[in-house]
Design a protein around this nucleic acid. Structure first.
Lengths: 189, 189
DNA sequence: TACATTATTGACCGATGGTTAATTAATAAG
DNA sequence: CTTATTAATTAACCATCGGTCAATAATGTA
């Protein structure tokens, strides 16, 4: 019975960080508000002071993370390097993002759950369009729209599989390189 | 109060069929024994007479489905045709199987649940090993182990995506051809 | 110090779900 | 017909979960 630890106040950021870690590790459905609270060493009721409900907490995290995907893509595009290497970086970056935000990725591209889905609008489409037009530009007409789609599906397969097996990007870094090289080769040569 | 409907006895097969459909539609965690029972128009307790628990029911389904995938692969391998075409057939066959047996495929490769996956350690690996060694043999040393894995993941991405959007194999036959050709080309040329 | 505001607690609710145990009906065997 | 076995029903148990809320402690402020 010692409410309010002054030196250790609860913030939205703290909640999001703890929640993100749990969501990534266990998936949306397997994380309860009580678990998050336990991680933060606060009561689960406290979280509801900062977020309306579980879905809103999750959606806030997803939005933040997808902003970082946009930044990542832009960062790579702004670099000075050969286009072929840029493609490699984009593909690897996409895989890395997918694996480091597994729960989010799942929501965007895999999950059927209507309750959660209703929170998103066209984010997946927008995300793909950004990706596709970047790749298209870097191929200088060598690749068709259909081929870029094929490329996306191949990356998607990689991410999907390792999302399911729950491994980290570092665990599969080498395999990701092989995968990306295979795709770049098929695209440009 | 009318236990035991004689003319409509409950069998393991009936339970598995109903459960498979629900598992695929909603995912392991989102399907309750009560839902399955409702679908079968029996009591949920009845299922426990035929299966020890939910996980065992699920595991039994998965095992059965893996067997049918293995059979498909063997059928193709037994055919008489050039190796390049055989590769195409395997890839297209894999996609076709995935899309025409979406239920099985999703159970086998898409479900993430830890509790469940602890039940099936070998099945997916064994199934993949069959696929990989078949492809390896057909490439005559041109492909590395890593590349074959890459190929598998690319196919996986295709199937996964179109499983989600619920299209039939016929709907995406042409795209599947593009995809498979892309892969074969990267593998052999 | 007294007061108002803010943050946190912990009990509680209704729902759901896995699982088990007691019980009852249908069927087969003798 | 009687009895044993099998297969199913029903209800109850227990845990968990999302979410709410009144009570209350910590803090800033006047």
């Amino acid at each position: 019975m010692s409410p309010r630890k002054a030196e250790n106040e609860l913030t939205r950021g703290m909640i999001m960080d703890a929640a993100r870690e749990l969501f990534v590790k266990n998936g949306y459905q397997h994380v309860s508000m009580r678990q998050i609270a336990k991680e933060l060493q606060c009561s689960h009721g406290a979280i509801y002071y900062h977020f309306k409900n579980k879905a809103e907490l999750f959606y806030t995290i997803v939005e933040e993370d997808f902003r970082s995907l946009d930044e990542l893509l832009q960062t790579i595009l702004d670099k000075e390097m050969p286009k072929r290497e840029k493609l490699m970086e984009i593909f690897l970056g996409y895989i890395e993002f997918g694996l480091q935000h597994q729960s989010q990725y799942e929501i965007m591209f895999l999950i059927k759950d209507e309750e959660v889905r209703s929170y998103l609008h066209q984010s997946p489409n927008v995300s793909y369009e950004r990706f596709a037009s970047a790749v298209y530009g870097l191929c200088e007409g060598k690749a068709s729209i259909g081929q870029i789609w094929t490329v996306f599906l191949s990356l998607h397969g990689f991410v999907t599989h390792y999302c399911r097996s729950g491994q980290t990007y570092d665990d599969v870094k080498d395999l990701a390189m092989v995968h990306a090289r295979f795709i770049v080769k098929g695209l440009l040569d």
